[in-house]
Simulated assay, not measured.
Amino acid sequence: MLRELVEPTGLYPRRRSLKRPTAAELRNDYAAARAWAAELSAATGHYSLETVDVGRTTIGSNQLPAAAMFATVEDEIAFAGKTRESVRFLDLVAGLSELDPALRGWALKRPLQLLGLGGAALTAAQVALWLRDNPAPGIYVRQLSLPGVHTKFIENHRRVIDEMEAVLLEGASAEAEPEALTEASDVAEDASVVADAPDTVLGAGAARTPAARFDRRHGFLHPPERVRFRLLDPETPLLGGPDDVMVTAEAFGALRLPVRTVIVTENLVNFLSLPQRPRTLAIFGGGYGFLALRDAGWLRDCRVLYWGDLDTHGFRILDQLRAVHRHVASVLMDEATLLAHCDAWGSEPSPSRAALTRLTDEESIVYKSLGNDDYGSAVRLEQELIRWDWALERLLP
């Protein structure tokens, strides 16, 4: 109905069928049926009623409402009690159209979302217009100087801004010279991709978070990925002594450390608790964020062990890490460890069903068994619940 207010399609007058009582319902509860018909007949200010004859052969002829006929969309909106909302919607559409006529198209695609956003939609439209007119600005989102626009606003409205920019780019391509049409269409298609879809492969150019993907898509600067690590070799002091260091991914990739073994773990306490060992480095993984390790080519010359949670998402993270470094071996992610700690099993909230192609045969068996509930319903063993003596025997043989 909101779309019909803006772009009439000839839908009105509009007939709305009514679910009316049957002859049996009339016989069993005549008072309720009569009250229903009377209520509809008394509220005919916004519609006219069509009636049918019901019950002629059972309890006698009764004229019951069969359909309501609305002459205009405004009449039906008024009957629904939404006149005030419809006026607000038209005001918002007018505001968007004043900013750029192409934005009217977005309003028609998302009428209820526009109502829900209210004035924030106009602010999001101003951001989309700025992005259209300032491709690849090379600044941080924080530096965007538009009224009412701040980092948190961008974070909360990324998808709307992307959709609006796509509409604007489509409008621009329609007015462009023929040789510019293809380029503008490609940009619009890229902008219309769902902003927060996860990367399936952490290859070149992948972005780890929705914010990072938004920044990359629009040419904003984004804080660099960072790597946190500990050098476990006491004979090789790092930076004058500290053994817990965080550097940018670029700096990590340029390191030349005298290590032969690298242990990646997802749990902070495990990371901090790993004991000293010659020529060994520990990395705090932090979930699906292995983009920071992609360009550290020197890791290919090391034995890399990955220790994640023994659940489906732990194997999924392992699979994605191998997209960056295929030689990674898992540790403490085997069936023997799982069964030896059944007293510590928990429940995985949303088990993964993804097809993982980079697991070994043994890993695939455990992954599929977890996903199929062969050990029990949504079983998981968090890495911090594995006995420390058991862990050290397998991590540092």
Rank of each mutant, 00 (worst) to 15 (best):
L108M: 07
G205H: 01
I161G: 09
V141H: 03
V193M: 09
A121K: 02
Y140C: 06
K109Y: 00
D133V: 03
F229V: 12
V167W: 14
A195P: 04
R226T: 14
L122M: 05
R217F: 00
D190P: 03
P198L: 05
A121Y: 00
R230Y: 04
P147D: 13
V141E: 13
L169M: 15
F153D: 07
L115C: 01
F220A: 05
A184P: 06
Q143A: 13
A121Q: 04
L122N: 05
G116V: 04
L131D: 04
A204I: 04
R208P: 04
A180W: 10
T151H: 13
R158E: 10
E155R: 13
I161F: 13
W106E: 07
G119T: 02
A174S: 14
A120I: 01
H222G: 03
A191E: 05
F220H: 06
V187F: 03
G219K: 09
A212R: 08
I139A: 08
P147Y: 11
N156R: 15
S185H: 09
R226K: 15
L129C: 01
F153W: 10
A184R: 11
R158H: 03
G205S: 06
T182Q: 12
D215W: 02
I139R: 14
V167E: 15
A188E: 10
D190A: 15
A180E: 13
A166N: 13
V201D: 03
Q126T: 06
G116R: 04
L181Y: 11
L108H: 08
P224F: 07
T123K: 00
H150Q: 15
D199I: 06
S192W: 06
A195C: 06
L122K: 00
R213T: 07
G203K: 05
L168P: 07
L144H: 12
E163F: 04
L112E: 02
P210S: 06
A128F: 02
L168Y: 09
L129A: 00
A191N: 12
E155M: 10
R132T: 03
R132N: 02
A136K: 14
E225D: 15
